[in-house]
């Protein structure tokens, strides 16, 4: 574990001694603050003259602070993560490759898995710092709206934001192992994350198919593979073991893939 800690602190220092961390933290905080304020302002405006979402003359859903400010905010932030996370992870291996320091790392007695884990934990730590200020938004709502607010979906939505960030970081890390060019690593990361995030959108066009006698529910498989679907489910306020395991498995899989990708450089 000492080697993991060494790699972790080395990566963290390089984040915080360069403008990267501050640019990311400032940008994300400002954007999330603006999105929150926009949502709040809009909510106050619409609740002044309508009770809820109407179909004809009938209100089919009343406006709520959870469904109309905070859960959409969490969803918007999860989309923002698709850009922010690769921006954080793109340099992790690509820079080492570019500067040829990867050879030093790989020829050192440190295990590849420790290098991967150390770098991943550093990126995850920075993402944690980035997401911590988001807690301020539900706190503001709870402070002013009091006990009327349903805190379950908010807590789970916030947890989903962290889990998504960690899963996307693992994918971004893998993308970074594929190229020595940080821009290429960034684009690869965005594409990979976008595929996993939005693959669920393909579900409606798929159906249960019978493949050589096997019943394959393609639509359900695609829906269960989608990060966006699991994120949406958590924001409803239902805590499911399958959602938690999905995020954990995603992290484990992409860290294993990153490990093999780095290892291939050692043996290739």
């Amino acid at each position: 574990m000492r080697t993991v800690r060494a790699i972790f602190s080395r990566e963290l220092k390089s984040y915080f001694f360069s403008p990267t961390a501050y640019v990311v933290l400032t940008g994300f905080t400002a954007l999330s603050g603006w999105l929150f304020y926009q949502g709040l302002e809009r909510f106050i405006r619409i609740t002044n003259y309508t009770q809820g979402y109407k179909v004809g003359d009938q209100v089919v859903r009343e406006w709520t602070l959870e469904d109309d400010i905070l859960i959409p905010l969490f969803k918007n932030l999860s989309i923002l993560l698709l850009i922010m996370v690769p921006a954080i992870t793109m340099r992790l291996f690509a820079e080492e490759k570019k500067l040829k320091t990867i050879e030093l790392l790989l020829t050192s007695p440190i295990r590849t898995s420790h290098i991967v884990l150390g770098k991943y934990l550093a990126a995850a730590f920075l993402l944690t710092l980035m997401l911590l200020p988001v807690a301020m938004f539900p706190t503001i709502i709870l402070y002013y709206a009091g006990s009327n607010v349903d805190s379950g979906p908010l807590l789970l939505g916030y947890l989903a934001l962290f889990l998504s960030a960690y899963a996307l970081a693992a994918m971004g890390l893998f993308a970074s192992t594929l190229s020595e060019n940080q821009i290429v690593a960034f684009i690869l990361g965005v594409v990979l994350e976008l595929i996993f995030f939005s693959i669920g959108l393909a579900a409606p066009s798929l159906d249960v198919v019978h493949f050589f006698g096997w019943r394959v529910p393609l639509n359900e498989i695609v829906r269960d593979l989608s990060l966006g679907n699991h994120f949406d489910f958590m924001t409803t306020g239902l805590l499911r073991l399958s959602d938690l395991l999905y995020f954990c498995c995603l992290i484990v899989f992409w860290l294993a893939a990153s490990n093999h990708s780095v290892e291939s450089a050692r043996w290739g």
């Binding site: 304020y37 909510f43 709520t64 709206a145």
Partner: peptide
């Protein structure tokens, strides 16, 4: 979920804007 509201005065709204943005 039952509808709920938030009531903010202009200074409170401004405070939230300055703090978050």
């Amino acid at each position: 979920r039952g509808g709920n509201r938030i009531y903010l005065s202009t200074p409170q709204k401004e405070g939230i804007f300055y703090a978050t943005v």
